[in-house]
């Protein structure tokens, strides 16, 4: 009887020890940890492409292919986004009907601040992107909002990105469970397969950067938003971050969400945060 009791107690103790040892790992795996996620994300790309300079990842496909890089560097002497840049600069300085300007809506007059967007607005409890902030600025000053995908919005964000070139991405996640949830939602969106093609963002930009998809070379996910907005030859024009997400969805045969949907705002937050420390290179040019 004593032996049976001892055996039972021994088994229980062993089970308790095993539970105690394994349970913290389960909790750790489910805990939202943006710092660890960003470190793992960056390390993945740094190890996968050891010959690419870290700051070069923001140049997308050009960081993956030497021939393309040389062509792009030559093209940068007369960059295709130059018209949008000039238009954006002029628009930015032109007062609204009430006499105020965009500079009145942003810290530091809107100059050199691109690296801080998107941010988490603790009052609203949601992510605010630069595009959203620009349209909110317009509406607060009695102006109609612009389309989120191209033209004026692309010009304005091109100018604001240009004034921030070289500054390291600096996205903050406040100590707020809603901010952590937004980051986690963005991460989930990034890795979730969708569309008839059954592709996630990661299928192309994590699993296959540097590979060709038809005539294009896929960009790495790391720093992919640092170059936005972009002039894209395929579009024959400029496009914003919203346009990039919408197009990616369509290409996988998924019906895109509305620009600035919560999911898009969250995935922008996630992708920008994991690129912290990498320089802003927008506006960019892509094939």
């Amino acid at each position: 009887m004593k032996a049976r009791t001892a055996l039972l107690l021994g088994s229980l103790s062993a089970a308790l020890v095993a539970f105690a040892l394994t349970s913290p790992r389960v909790i750790a795996a489910d805990k939202v940890d943006p710092v660890a996620d960003a470190k793992a994300f960056q390390n993945f790309f740094f190890q996968k492409f050891p010959n690419v300079k870290h700051e070069d990842f923001v140049n997308g496909p050009y960081s993956m292919n030497e021939d393309m890089k040389r062509q792009w560097q030559e093209k940068e002497e007369f960059p295709p986004y130059e018209f949008a840049l000039d238009a954006g600069k002029e628009m930015f300085a032109t007062p609204f009907k009430n006499g105020k300007t965009y500079a009145d809506c942003f810290p530091n007059g809107g100059i050199g601040i691109r690296q801080n967007y998107p941010y988490f607005d603790t009052k609203e409890g949601k992510v605010v992107t630069l595009e959203l902030a620009l349209n909110r600025c317009r509406e607060a000053n009695g102006e109609a909002p612009y389309s989120y995908v191209k033209d004026e919005m692309a010009s304005l964000t091109a100018y604001m990105a240009f004034t921030s070139r070289g500054k390291p991405m600096d996205i903050r996640i406040p100590d707020d469970p809603r901010a952590l949830q937004a980051f986690e939602n963005g991460k989930r969106y990034f890795y979730t397969r969708r569309g008839q093609m059954n592709f996630s963002c990661a299928s192309c930009h994590v699993q296959s950067p540097g590979e060709r998809i038809r005539a294009e070379i896929l960009a790495p996910a790391l720093g992919i938003l640092n170059a936005l907005p972009i002039y894209r030859s395929e579009w024959s024009g400029m496009g914003t971050t919203s346009r990039r997400f919408v197009t990616c969805n369509s290409q996988t045969r998924a019906v895109p969400l509305e620009p600035q949907a919560d999911e898009y705002r969250d995935v922008e937050y996630f992708l920008s945060y994991v690129a912290n420390g990498l320089p802003i290179s927008g506006p960019g040019a892509r094939p």
Partner: peptide
């Protein structure tokens, strides 16, 4: 299933 693709 998305978790299987996550970089950790």
């Amino acid at each position: 299933a998305w978790k299987t693709m996550e970089i950790r």
